[in-house]
Structures are given as structure tokens and as C-alpha cells.
Computed example of a mutant assay.
Amino acid sequence: MNLTFRTKSRHGYSVKFSPYFPHRLACVSSQYYGIAGCGSLFVLDVHPGEIKLVQLFDWNDGLFDLTWAENNENLLVTAAGDGSIQIWDIAQSQNPLKVLKEHTKEVNAVDWSQTRNEHFVISASWDHLIKLWDINHNQSLATYTGHDYIVYNACWSPHIPGCFASASGDQTVRLWDSRKPDSGAVVIPAHKGEVLTCDWCKYDKNVLFSGSSDGFIKSWDIRNPQSPLCVLSGHKYAVRRVRSSPFSGAVVASASYDFTVKIWDVEKQTCVDTIEHHTEFVYGLDFNLHIPGQLADCGWDEQLHVFHLPSHQPGAL
């Protein structure tokens, strides 16, 4: 079953399921394709036959990414075009609990640590920098330099404490130890185009996936990243988001500027399904941590969809 929610004059950039509730998700969006105008954070609940709006929050610049807190079911962090990140309590005020601003350009990505300090968040920006935050403090704890171009994505390892990966327009993926900001990063020359996204395998702590403007998805063994473990080919345009399944180490999903979402069998290195329910760039994509085979995506066509993989459809054999 495919359920749809319209983000109404807002173009979707990122969608994430709650780590606490199987029915809850959130989406960030921007007016005018993120070029101008404000942004909105939608908090949504999935009910039988419909998606209901729970809360709507507005910010005075575009919102490009979000992450749920790992220690509070009501906290969310969003990334904004004005260089700030916002901490929201969805059970309270319409205004953020806190706004942290040190980046000098748009913030593309935020991610909340799952393994180290429960208050730690990283942010990645157009200013080529990655910053480490403790949400209880008003200044960043560390700044990570080395990328030569926009940092599009940064994500914590779900297995290795203090480790995170980043993806950049400088065509590299980098691996960082958050405890050693001055020691630099392991650099992986990953693609021949800008690297727009990365995600960790949930079943093997040494495997990382990357997606690029060159249309390819690659997987890497971080212990020996000289060449990719696999290369997935099939998207016609840039891969904007890659997400590893929380229920199978062999399944990866990707969202692309070719208006599609593709499901891949990594072991066979083949595309097993193509979902074509968008009419514009698909930007956001996420697996539900609680319901096998359920995903959500969002795009520039003002549509957010919640759907199941074909093999997990009700009544499927």
C-alpha cells in the first residue's frame, strides 16, 4: 500500500522515521526548491489508509536535513540554509529550544550519535566543514577540516564509537575519529562525480555505501578501501540518497534525480525493483526501523510517500 502526504508548496529534502514509534516520521522541506524562502518541518503519523499531520514547524530559511534524538522521543534537530541547526521539542513550543549557528553557509546534513555520547550531533555544510555539537552547549566541540568542496552528508557509524563518515563534492568519502579532530581523516577517492550521500551497513561495521552525481552506488570495506566491494549501476542521473536496510545487510535503497527509488541486492549487484511514483527529483529516503520492508521518500514534487517493498506487501508470498 502506498500512502501519500502533500507538503503543499514545500519541496521535500529529507525524511526520517522515528527510532521510538513505528508509525511516526518527520520531513523537512523548503520553498522555491531551496533557493529562497522559508522551510517547514512536518511531523507525521501513519494510520491505516492515511498519513496525518501531527505538528508543523516553520523556519525562516530552507530546511535540508533532520535527525531524531537518540535519548528523547520528542527531540529533533534540523539543518538550515542560514548556516544554523535547530533543536525542536515537538511536544512543546512552536519555536526551537535552541539554535546553534557557526557554519557560514548552508547546512546540508545533521546526524545524532548512536554509540558514543547521547548528546552528540554532527553537521555538514557548504562551507566545507563538519562540526561536532553537544546539544547542551552553545558552541561546537570540534571542527573537522580537509574537504575541498561542499560536504553533502555526514553520518555516524552505528557500530564504531566516535567514528563517522562524510561525503563531499570533492569526489571523496572520508572516515573520521571524532575524538581526534586534528588527526585528519582516511580519504577514499570514491567517485568520478560529486559524492552526495553515504550510509553505513547495519550488519557489518566495516562496510560503507556511497552514492554520487555519476549515477553509481558503491560499497567499501573501510579496512581496505583501495577499490569498491561492489558497484551498482542503473540510475540515469545523480544518486541523492542511499540507505541501508535495517533488516538485511544485502538490501540497499537509493533515491535519484531521475525521479526514481531503486531497491538493490548488494550480493547479486542487481536492481530488484524500481519505484516510479515521483514526477521530480527524489531527495529524501528512509527505512522504518520497526516495520520490515517499509520505506518513506520525499521529493521536489511536494509528495511524500510511505510504501512497502514488493516482497513485504500485505498478501505477498
Rank of each mutant, 00 (worst) to 15 (best):
D82R: 04
D82A: 08
G83P: 05
S84G: 12
S84L: 03
S84V: 02
I85T: 11
Q86H: 14
Q86R: 15
Q86Y: 04
I87S: 12
I87Q: 15
I87H: 12
W88H: 02
W88M: 03
W88Y: 04
D89E: 08
A91N: 14
Q92W: 00
Q92E: 13
Q92D: 06
Q92R: 09
S93P: 01
S93E: 09
S93V: 01
S93Q: 10
Q94C: 08
Q94S: 10
N95M: 08
N95Q: 15
N95W: 01
P96E: 08
P96V: 06
P96M: 07
L97Q: 15
L97V: 14
L97P: 02
K98A: 15
K98H: 12
K98W: 03
K98N: 12
L100N: 07
L100E: 03
L100A: 10
K101V: 03
K101Y: 02
K101P: 05
K101C: 12
E102Y: 12
H103M: 10
H103T: 10
H103A: 09
H103F: 13
H103Q: 10
T104P: 00
T104N: 11
K105A: 14
K105T: 08
K105V: 01
E106Y: 04
E106G: 02
E106H: 04
E106I: 09
E106Q: 11
V107P: 03
V107F: 09
V107Y: 03
V107N: 02
V107G: 02
N108R: 15
N108L: 11
N108A: 11
N108D: 09
A109M: 13
A109F: 14
A109W: 10
A109G: 13
A109Y: 14
D111I: 10
D111C: 11
D111G: 05
D111L: 12
D111P: 08
W112Q: 05
W112P: 00
S113M: 03
S113G: 06
Q114D: 09
T115P: 05
T115Y: 00
T115K: 11
T115V: 14
R116Y: 11
R116M: 12
N117S: 10
N117W: 01
E118I: 01
E118D: 13
E118W: 00
H119A: 10
H119T: 13
H119E: 15
H119L: 12
F120D: 07
F120A: 09
V121L: 13
V121D: 05
V121A: 11
I122R: 02
I122M: 13
S123L: 08
S123R: 07
A124N: 11
A124H: 09
A124S: 15
S125R: 07
W126S: 15
W126I: 07
W126F: 11
D127P: 13
D127Q: 11
D127H: 09
H128I: 06
H128E: 14
H128Y: 11
H128G: 00
H128F: 09
H128D: 13
L129D: 01
I130H: 01
I130Y: 03
I130Q: 05
K131C: 11
K131L: 04
K131Y: 00
L132Y: 13
L132C: 15
W133Y: 14
W133H: 14
W133G: 08
W133K: 05
W133N: 09
W133A: 09
D134Q: 01
I135A: 05
N136C: 04
N136K: 04
N136A: 03
N136G: 04
N136F: 00
H137G: 07
H137I: 04
